[in-house]
Design a protein around this nucleic acid. Sequence first.
DNA 1: CGAGTGACCGCAA
DNA 2: ATTGCGGCCACTC
Length: 104
Amino acid sequence: MVDSDFRRSIELLMARVPEGSVTTYGDLAAMIGRPLAGRFVGGVAHTGAVDLPWHRLVNRFGRLASGYPGGRAEQARQLEREGIACSDDKVEDFEDRRWRLGSL
DNA sequence: CGAGTGACCGCAA
DNA sequence: ATTGCGGCCACTC
């Protein structure tokens, strides 16, 4: 099934990200079939789907986003609240907590 | 309807 | 190590 709604797929994936796990813009984009559309993934986050846990979205370096509402400190707090330790605005064991398809 | 834009990614100087 | 540029994709004004 070809989901013409690109952001629809993003929202679906975001809704499936388990707590304690994080994902990256690039990976998320790659999951839906657009590995180069990482930019747009952030765009979707900025415009809609407020009900989704965007705080689990980080860049490929495991670093917290910069445009998050409240700032990185807020996002870091959200992650720690779910059991994810953060250090200097970075997710610890990021590679290990990196969510991926297969849990579906 | 057209152009700009973005919470990115990768490489080059 | 840091800074700058381009590209890529779909959305917003």
